[in-house]
């Protein structure tokens, strides 16, 4: 498989890229930190990747999305899958104090994420299709006190991904929408750990299976499908009192 990942120097994206490398896939890493990309590229080469390409691509710079994807596809000699796992994160309390930060988060996680996915969609469809894998979040499944703007952007992203899947699957585009629950990565390191927390490597194994088989929606760890089923059915008066 020839796979491009944006945001794979850290977290679940890193685990997914390593899993691909270990089975010999050709991997292109896109990200904003040149040194971190170079280190991750060395890692993927050592783990056995068929080929590793690197490119600078920042969620803040949508003008670069198309060219970065084109360069990655050239380097790998084609493209079977594009993965977006990069995202911004902040707690509602941090955003309250800093409106500019709130706008930045909303822009990165929604508007620019969709711009990246659109660029990838166009590219994949122009070459006969492929897989578009989007890391959203269970935070987008039901509004809670703690989900805030982050959850809203993820809700929008999930909505968009489902719509794409309905529309473009007949044309050969397979959309895989990933909804991670709480996963122990650097992003969540400062948060209290809830029950059912997952590990990035285990999430990545499940996501790769979903990519291989074309599952449209994947919760990871899988128990979160059940957890969210319950949370979605809770009436509003309960949500008003719930502290999570």
């Amino acid at each position: 498989m020839k796979i491009v990942l944006l945001g794979a120097t850290r977290g679940m994206g890193r685990s997914l890229a390593r899993l691909c490398a270990r089975r010999g896939d050709a991997v292109a890493l896109l990200g904003r930190e040149r040194d971190e990309i170079a280190r991750s590229a060395r890692d993927l080469v050592a783990l056995g990747a068929g080929a590793v390409a690197q490119g600078i691509c920042d969620l803040d710079d949508p003008a670069r999305f198309g060219p970065a994807l084109a360069a990655a596809a050239d380097a790998l000699g084609g493209l079977d899958a594009v993965v977006l796992s990069a995202a911004d994160f902040a707690r509602p309390a941090d955003l309250d104090a800093d409106p500019a930060r709130a706008v930045r988060l909303a822009t990165r996680n929604f508007a620019h994420s969709i711009a990246f996915l659109e660029a990838a969609r166009v590219r994949l469809l122009a070459h006969g299709g492929g897989t578009l894998c989007v890391f959203s979040s269970v935070a987008g499944d039901r509004a809670r006190k703690a989900t805030g703007i982050y959850g809203a952007t993820k809700a929008g992203l999930s909505h968009y991904a489902v719509s794409l899947d309905l529309r473009d699957r007949p044309r050969g585009l397979r959309v895989v929408l990933v909804k991670p629950g709480f996963v122990r990565t650097g992003m969540t390191a400062d948060l209290p750990v809830p029950p059912f927390a997952g590990e990035p490597d285990a999430v990545a194994r499940r996501v790769l299976r979903a990519i291989d088989r074309g599952w449209p929606v994947v919760y990871a760890p899988p128990i979160w499908r059940l957890v969210m089923l319950v949370i979605r059915t809770l009436p509003r008066f309960v949500m008003r009192r719930a502290e999570f």
Binding site: S40, R42, D43, A46, T185, G186, P200
Partner: peptide, 9 residues
């Protein structure tokens, strides 16, 4: 825990 990349083999 999360700093576990191989740099060369």
């Amino acid at each position: 825990r999360l700093g576990d990349r191989v740099l060369a083999f």
